[in-house]
Each structure stands twice: as C-alpha cells, then as structure tokens.
C-alpha cells in the first residue's frame, strides 16, 4: 500500500519533457488521483542514457549519481524514475558504487561531494504493483474490458536480474497484474522482454524497424488490440516507427501503443486528451464496451 504522507522524489528524465511528454502528463494525473505524492527533484540533469555508458563509464556514473545526490540533499529517500533507461542507469551506478569503493571514490571526486548512496529507486511497475498495490482497483471508475493488452516490458525493466526485484526476468507478470486491475484482459505472447532496438532508433533505423515489427506482429498474432509499455524509448520505436513499417510493408497492420500510466488513467476516468493519448502516432480507439459504460455513467 502507498504510505500516506510519504513523498516520493520524482526523476522525470529528458524524454518526459519532450518526445514522451504524454507519459509525464498521465503519470502526474494518475498519481494525483491516487494520492501518491511526487516531488520533482530540483535541478535534475540527464542520467547520461545509453550514449554515456556506451562510451565513457566514469561520465555515466557521475551523471547518474548527481541526481541521486540531489535527491539525498533534498531529503528524498525514494526516487521514482518512470523512464526505463533512466531507472536502469540509476540502479546500475548505485550498485557499482556499492560494490566497488574505487568507483564510489571516483564519482565523489567528480562531483566534489560525498554520497551516502542509499536512495531507493523505483520504476512505474514497482510504484503501482508494490508501493500502491490495490489503489487502482479501489479508484477505478471505468472497467477497461474489451481491451486485449500485450504487456511489453522490453529490456531495462527486467534486466539485469541481480539488480531488479522482478518475479522472473524472462517471464515476468507484474505489469499483467496492474493491467488486470484496470479490468483489461491480457494476452499470452512471446516478445514481452525482447529488445526493440532502443537507442539505435535514429542511427540504425533499419535495425529498430525490423526488431519492433517482430514485436508488433507477435502481439497481433496473439490477438492483442493494444500494446502497453512503460518506457519512452520503447514507445517511440513501437508507435512512431509504425509509420515507416507502413511504408516498407504495405500489409502492415497497425496497433496502438499506450503507456501503462495512460491505461490506468483511462480506468480512473480521465479523458484521452487529459492523458495525452491524442499525441500518439497510431490512433487509439476505445472499444465500444468501454464507451457504452461512459455513456451510462
């Protein structure tokens, strides 16, 4: 259960202020409604993302740790990082500094400050599955039945297993539990934890289109009518890149891709535009069953 009065630090990450702004819109709406207090870290900076850890590990550690240090200084013990990549950078740096004193010393020198390295980091699945378990069901005003959701975890919410408190890194079901709480059905499918190509989105678009198309086709083959994600990079690759898929493969069948927070928001009664669902490239149409409930209400 969410602890009443507990304030979570909120680390938005760069995408939440730009290409994934509907993720932030929906997260803040949902958190507000469920009484989860999120306080944005003052003066947060980029976690370094793939580009830092792929080319310079000291830079990557320092950039990620700067934000955990700010959280410490601002009295925030638990941080919510909705972006899967930011979440993963933070937990990886935290673990490296915990396990290797020389890395911690280096980071402290780079930041000219000492760090206690005790901030807990949550992703949105942790937030809604563990920290606020049960809240969605009690706040629900709309039953999302009629939606057949393919829950897509991607990579960075389930791996590496030694750092992530997941039920099973190959066959997780925490996102399914949250989706079921909204009343939606979940489909069994194969590509839940396969990679979408992530940061190659711009530099090797060909790879990303291939990998993302396989994910989409598998979801469709198993009867899904919506894909649920919790990562801005996955969303870009699965939603925006369907325009390229449509050009390359005329037979491509489209499927809308929603953020987990948008689905929760719909079940809590928010409209599509309040949650930013109209900002997606692939249009999301609510199934008739849900529309009829709204008409009756």
């Amino acid at each position: 259960m969410a602890d009443a009065g507990l304030t979570y630090g909120y680390f938005p990450g760069c995408s939440q202020k730009g290409s994934a702004r509907e993720y932030e819109m929906s997260l803040l709406k949902v958190a507000g409604k469920l009484g989860i207090d999120l306080k944005e870290i003052d003066d947060w900076s980029c976690c370094g993302a793939t580009s830092a850890h792929a080319t310079n590990h000291r830079l990557a550690n320092a950039l990620a740790m700067r934000n955990m240090l700010l959280a410490e200084q601002q009295g925030l013990e638990t941080l919510v990082a909705p972006c899967a990549a930011c979440f993963n950078r933070l937990i990886t740096t935290k673990a490296e500094c915990r396990n290797h004193p020389e890395s911690k010393k280096d980071v402290e020198e780079l930041l000219s400050a000492s760090v206690s390295n005790t901030t807990s980091i949550l992703n949105v699945i942790d937030l809604f599955d563990k920290a606020s378990n049960g809240l969605i069901g009690s706040g629900r005003v709309r039953d999302m039945k009629g939606l057949k959701a393919a829950c897509y975890y991607g990579c960075l919410l389930v791996r590496p297993p030694e750092l992530i408190d997941t039920d099973d890194s190959e066959q997780p079901d925490s996102m399914e539990r949250i989706v079921k709480a909204t009343g939606a059905d979940v489909v069994e499918w194969n590509y839940r934890t396969e990679c979408c190509g992530a940061a190659h989105s711009i530099s090797r678009r060909d790879i990303v289109v291939d990998l993302s198309k396989r994910i989409i086709d598998d979801a469709l083959m198993h009867g899904a009518n919506v894909i649920i994600v919790a990562c801005p990079m996955c969303h870009t690759n699965l939603d925006m890149r369907q325009r390229v898929m449509r050009r390359m493969y005329p037979s491509h069948k489209e499927i809308p891709v929603l953020y987990l927070t948008e689905l929760i928001g719909l079940s809590l009664g928010f409209t599509e535009s309040e949650l930013g669902i109209d900002l997606h490239y692939i249009r999301f149409n609510m199934p008739n069953e849900i529309m009829n409930q709204t008409a009756q209400a």
Binding site: K17, C46, G48, A49, S51, A52, H200, S203
Partner: peptide
C-alpha cells in the same frame, strides 16, 4: 552510431539535459 552518441553527449554537456 558513434556520431549519434557524440551528438547526444554534446547536448548534455551544453545544457545538462538532452
């Protein structure tokens, strides 16, 4: 790929965010 990483980090260096 290497140009993308360099361009990304140049933005972070200048502004602190991407």
């Amino acid at each position: 790929i290497s140009s993308f990483h360099e361009a990304f980090l140049r933005q972070v260096r200048l502004f602190g965010r991407s």
